[in-house]
Design a binder for these strands. Structure first.
Lengths: 209, 209
DNA sequence: ACCTGAACACCGTTCAAGT
DNA sequence: ACCTGAACACCGTTCAAGT
């Protein structure tokens, strides 16, 4: 008589994701996660080999939410812009997950599928392999950098902390403008980047024509 | 009769930095660090209140190596470029430290001094406050994003892993070109950003003149 | 003032035992 | 096949005790 199955990989990943979002990466311990699932710690090892595999699955579930469908249907400039905004929106909704993405796609399927779609879209648009690699890397830097830590929130609220820094007298006010600062910096960078690529693309075509 | 003083904050920070560089953040435990210093774990609490304070001091010692002297002596375009390259070079030499910088300068003096120098330099050059904030944030994204994880090393060496991704067939070769990929993407981005800022600056001057 | 040993409440992971 | 309890070798941190 088989007892009811208590755990699945999906239930574990969902609970871990909720814990990471709510309390951060450090809040995830095997025992804590197991308790959240109404189970004992070692039970999780029937479904994942290590704690790290669980966190990897959480990271991949987040990346799977990024929309990469723009490549193929849109001009490469517009596709890059829409993808970058989608990517950043997803990561900004789950900032605690970003540090886990830092070391690349590794073996995570959603991350590999995203890299494939972006790189393929750039090649199809006519970019050479080396440049397409640079563009993908650069946009990853921009998205990860901006999602990893809010620039605005990186300054403490205590004005006294800044009394010896002549130009930072108003830094403690940054937190109030968090959204416009972080969003503004990202959009400024993305716009300038795509404009720069557009010129690079045009000049390469011009030379080769 | 006072015994010889075994520990100083400096000795602790130096040993912690060496451990972070050699084996990563996870290798730093109080007991391990104490053993490296020939002392028992709890002794460290005579010099730092928490392990996190030790790691904060390590992070600030790294940031202190960044050269911010270009602002004031150079044109803002050149100062930004030289500073960004210095910043990236320092972080690339200590990649394991980068995740600790993600949440901003906080209360770390070297990080605050750097923010002050960059922001002040941009204001002196004539940039409005909001734009100067965006530029500082954007360059932090780029430097942190590129130093945080090598894009090239983010792909595994096993070609079999990529067999189902049509455009990633050669991804396993990326590691061989690590330096040129990561450096190339960073330089591409920095050049395009500064060119874009230059045009933005010129057009703002043109309108106001 | 600074270092130590013992102790607290935790970790990730293994494994024999149960069903 | 999957879950459990006990155990292993660790954690960060506290604190009374030593010098």
């Amino acid at each position: 008589m088989a007892r009811p199955r208590l755990l699945t990989r999906e239930r574990i990943v969902d609970a871990a994701a909720a814990l990471v979002d709510a309390e951060g990466l450090d809040a995830v311990s095997i025992r804590r996660l197991a308790a959240e699932l109404g189970v004992q710690g070692p039970s999780l090892y029937n479904h994942f080999a290590t704690k790290n595999e669980i966190l990897d699955a959480v990271a991949d579930a987040v990346v799977a939410q990024v929309n990469v469908s723009f490549f193929g249907t849109h001009d490469w400039r517009e596709a890059l812009r829409l993808w970058a905004h989608s990517y950043r929106a997803v990561l900004s909704a789950h900032p605690n997950v970003v540090p886990m993405l830092a070391h690349g796609p590794g073996r995570r399927p959603a991350a590999l599928a995203m890299a494939d779609a972006v790189y393929g879209g750039l090649l199809d648009a006519g970019w050479p392999e080396a440049r397409a690699t640079h563009i993908g890397a650069l946009l990853r830097y921009l998205v990860h950098g901006s999602a990893l830590g809010s620039f605005a929130l990186g300054f403490a609220e205590d004005p006294l902390l800044y009394e010896h820094y002549p130009h930072l007298q108003r830094a403690h006010l940054l937190a109030e403008h968090k959204h416009s600062v972080d969003e503004g910096a990202f959009t400024l960078g993305l716009d300038m980047f795509i404009a720069g690529l557009d010129r690079l693309f045009a000049s390469a075509k011009g030379v080769s024509a």
